[in-house]
């Protein structure tokens, strides 16, 4: 089975390549022209390399079309940057990829989306957010990441139609060595770390667990046509995650809990002020922008039951082990 992996040198992509090789895939990796193969974290001798940049059509498109790709794992996307950057790196890249594929041969497309596409404003605090939950109806009020990832999902669905099996994976906050999510802190002020919504579940997914789920999404027959959320078992709260990281010496800051009701109230007042007095002109950071803030800190419950049922996936790394991988990588502050 020939599997094309985009974003193959990234945080998640490099682990997917590694696991894919172990699973016996013929891995085809699209890597940027300037990438030093000696520095990639997988065995480049065992991978078919296609040099190219998804942002720009080029010879790589013909090479992909001719490569006999059975499955695509599409991980490439921007996770930060201004809206112009994210449109190019997420949307244009996806459009160019879809245009290059041999759709007659392509059997399955595993698309890596995100929890950020969901609507967090409508559900009541404490309710379950699962695959049936509503997609954000007002993306313009969210951040460019939500806006472009939502549009990216729609574009993939439209382009593939019924021709190809589509599996959409929506991971939570992917963490692991080098990605600590600030140990659960919303903001740090000198020796203090503000822990917003301390009792809310932090929807974590360890990068190794996430990569394993991607592998299962490639081969699971039941996953065809499905949307699957990915979070680990036994999710900690923001406060618990911070405490565990602190216990492992990753941060020496003092955690200051800020209850959700306080976070929510301040943001509501600012939103009201903006709407009634300032004509909707203010641009607040995620910490204070109501709709964006809800997506990050509103207390919700999460489940990975569908991932377990359809993918046969079990998150092998516990939260405690996952934090150990952070500590071992030196994610100290």
């Amino acid at each position: 089975m020939k599997v094309l992996i985009t974003g193959s040198t990234g945080f998640l992509g490099s682990r997917v390549v590694d696991l894919g090789l172990r699973a016996g895939w013929d891995v085809v990796a699209l890597v940027r022209p300037s990438t030093d193969l000696a520095a990639v974290p997988w065995d480049s001798e065992k991978v078919d390399i296609i040099r190219g940049d998804l942002r720009q059509p080029g010879p790589w498109g013909d090479q992909i079309a001719a490569a006999g790709i059975d499955v695509v794992v599409h991980l490439a996307a921007a996770t930060s940057g201004d809206i112009g950057d994210q449109v190019v790196n997420t949307l244009v890249s996806t459009e160019n990829l879809l245009a290059a594929l041999d759709h007659d041969r392509l059997r399955r497309f595993v698309h890596i989306s995100t929890f950020s596409v969901y609507d967090y404003s409508s559900p009541r605090p404490g309710s379950l957010l699962d695959e049936e939950s509503r997609i954000e109806p007002l993306p313009a009020r969210r951040d460019p990441y939500t806006q472009t990832k939502r549009a990216q999902e729609a574009a993939v669905r439209q382009a593939l139609g019924d021709r190809t099996e589509l599996v959409i994976l929506r991971p939570g906050a992917i963490y692991g060595p080098g990605a600590s999510w600030d140990h659960g802190a919303a903001v740090t002020l000198g020796r203090f770390a503000l822990i917003f919504s301390p009792q809310a579940e932090l929807r974590l997914c360890h990068v190794d667990n996430c990569a394993a789920a991607v592998v299962e999404a490639v081969r699971s027959p039941e996953a065809a046509g499905e949307v699957v959320n990915l979070v680990d078992d036994d999710l900690p709260t923001h406060a618990e995650f911070f405490a565990m990281c602190r216990d492992r010496g990753m941060t020496s800051r003092i955690g200051v809990p800020v209850p959700w009701v306080a976070v929510d109230t301040v943001a509501r007042l600012l939103a009201l002020l903006d709407r009634t007095r300032l004509g909707g002109a203010i641009k607040l950071p995620e910490l204070l922008a109501h709709r964006r803030q809800q997506a990050r800190w509103k207390p919700m419950r999460y489940t990975n039951q569908r991932a377990k049922d359809l993918l046969g996936w079990r998150p092998e790394r516990s939260i405690s082990e996952g934090i150990s991988t952070l500590a071992d990588a030196g994610s100290n502050r």
């Binding site: 449109v87 949307l91 244009v92 996806t94 459009e95 993306p139 313009a140 806006q147 472009t148 549009a151 574009a155």
Partner: peptide, 13 residues
């Protein structure tokens, strides 16, 4: 010239 970029701008604005 990119349909996806045009649609995105249409929907966003």
């Amino acid at each position: 010239r990119s349909p996806i970029v045009g649609r995105f701008a249409r929907d966003q604005y």
